[in-house]
Structure formats: C-alpha cells, structure tokens
C-alpha cells in the first residue's frame, strides 16, 4: 500500500530554526569569517588565508593544553561514570530514605560553578582549609597552589564532587524503569548479582549512560570557571585547560583572528568526539538487535 506522506508539519520547526540561526549558526559563521582575517578594527580587516590555523596548530602552548584537556576529561569520565553507577545501585529504592538520598545527591548540582570553585579553594587550602589541613596533618605534603600533581588531583576531585550526582541520578531513574519481571526471571534462573548487573541493569542503563557520558564529556571539555577560580590555571600552566587558553588569547591579548581559528578547531574536536561516542554506543545497540 502506498502511504501518502505529508511533510507540512516540518514548517512548525521553523521558529526553532530561526532561533538557532540567530543564536548559534550566524555567530558561528562570524567566527569562521574572523578566523581567516587579521582584524584591527571594524573597518580594517585583512584576509590572511589559513595563516592563523597554521600558527595555532603549531603553537606548543595550545598543543599542551589540548593534551591536558583530554587527560582531564578522560580521568573525570573514568571516575564519575563507574562511581555514579555504583552510587545509583546502592541507593534505597523506596521509602523516606530514597527521597532523602535524592535530595542529598541533588545538592551539589544546584551550586553554581564559581561557588564550587570558591568552596574548594578554601576547603583545600593547607593553612585554613579542612581538607588541606587534614592531609598535611597526616604527614602528607599537600599544597595545590605550588604542586602541579596536587593541583590536578584537587581539580579532578572537585569535578567528581560536583557532577557524580548527575550520573547517579540519571542511572537511578534508569534503574527504576526496569520492570520487576526481569528480576523475577533472574531469580528463577538463580542469576548472581553480577549477572543481573551485566545482563539486565547495564544494558537497560545504556540510554541514560549515553546522555550522561555525552553531557559530562562536553561539560568537562569546556570547563572554565572551576579551575579558574581554584587554581587560576597554575601552578605554571599545569591546570590551564583549553577554554582558559582561548579566553586569554581572545580577551587578554585581543588576538581575535587566532582565537577564532582556535575556536573552530575546538568546535571540530567536540563535534568529532561527541559523534564517536554517540555512534559507538548506538552501533552496539544495533548489533545486538
């Protein structure tokens, strides 16, 4: 039977398209235009071709911060995803305790980035901060302002503190959506806890985990405020991530052209990694069915 398709409903998407064009597509096009010119002021702009792209790609400062950024996002994901799943599995399923733990978990998510940065800046200080003082009291040398490793650990720990709840809450909602029949069937088969996790819970969590991994990757890849407040990118450049390097370039030195070229490269990397995550996970799904 031939089904007549009516696509006129697509016109309803038009307002959204106009809004996105105004807020994202046109600014992005402008950035592309800036990235091929040397801009002095509004009337003095000179076409320089791919010069800025070459400069930016060969700049060791940017290569270093790119590497640092991947290490940071990688470690944040490697800790937050398993930890979030574990927390969700251990949470009570019903009663007052369930509501209480949901509220407690939601608290870090409600705190603004710069406040999180300030909290940790004080909390981790060796002289007056509870965490810094306690670690030093145990005889372990710890100072995030002078030691690069300590600064790294503090920045990662801060992100884990701030965002593991998001993964835990997402997984919790995913777990609650699994019908009881699956668990009953598992019980009849005398499946172990590990088998239940591997064959029932984890596959059912895939949907929310895709969202969780993507959100956490993109957020951590674009992180700015928290490390800026906590360490200011130091000691040296050890916690200077991509967005901070970019801001220094665009606003600090007012190098609009190179900063635009850098933004385009940044954008392409985010696009590539997000696409890779999405495709890998959705392909796994396709192969199974």
């Amino acid at each position: 039977m031939n089904k007549i398709q009516n696509n006129r409903a697509w016109f309803l998407v038009l307002p959204v398209f106009i809004l996105v064009a105004f807020s994202a597509i046109i600014p992005l096009m402008t950035v592309v235009n800036y990235s091929v010119q040397d801009i002095f002021d509004q009337n003095n702009a000179y076409f320089v071709g791919v010069e800025w792209y070459r400069d930016v790609l060969q700049d060791p400062r940017l290569q270093d911060s790119l590497l640092r950024q991947f290490m940071y996002s990688g470690s944040v994901l490697a800790i937050e995803i398993p930890l979030g799943i574990a927390v969700a599995l251990m949470m009570p399923t019903r009663g007052a305790m369930a509501s209480l733990s949901l509220i407690l978990l939601a608290i870090p998510l409600l705190i603004p980035w710069n406040v999180v940065g300030t909290i940790w800046q004080i909390f981790a200080r060796a002289d007056i901060g509870l965490l810094g003082y306690a670690i030093n009291g145990m005889g372990i040398e710890y100072n995030y302002a002078t030691n690069a490793t300590d600064a790294w650990l503090t920045v990662v720990l801060m992100d884990v503190w701030h965002w593991t709840s998001l993964i835990a809450l997402l997984c919790y909602s995913g777990l609650r959506a699994i019908p009881d029949a699956y668990y009953q069937a598992a019980k009849i088969d005398r499946a172990s806890d590990w088998a239940i996790f591997k064959y029932i819970q984890l596959p059912k969590l895939k949907g929310v985990l895709i969202i969780g991994v993507l959100l956490r990757f993109m957020d951590s890849f674009m992180i700015y405020t928290e490390p800026f407040v906590l360490t200011g990118g130091g000691p040296g450049n050890s916690t200077t991530f991509l967005s901070q390097t970019l801001t220094k370039m665009a606003i600090g030195q007012f190098d609009i052209g190179p900063a635009a070229a850098f933004s385009m490269i940044y954008f392409l990397i985010v696009l590539l990694v997000s696409w890779l995550f999405f495709t890998t996970i959705s392909q796994l799904d396709k192969n199974k069915t």
Binding site: I26, V32, N33, V36, Q37, A45, F47
Partner: peptide
C-alpha cells in the same frame, strides 16, 4: 552584514 566581516572565500564556503 558588515559586522560579520564576510570574505569571498568564506562566503563561497557557506554557499
């Protein structure tokens, strides 16, 4: 449109 700082190559690219 001048604020968008168009150049011929980028215009061709987007077209």
């Amino acid at each position: 449109m001048s604020w968008m700082a168009w150049t011929l190559p980028t215009a061709v690219f987007f077209i």
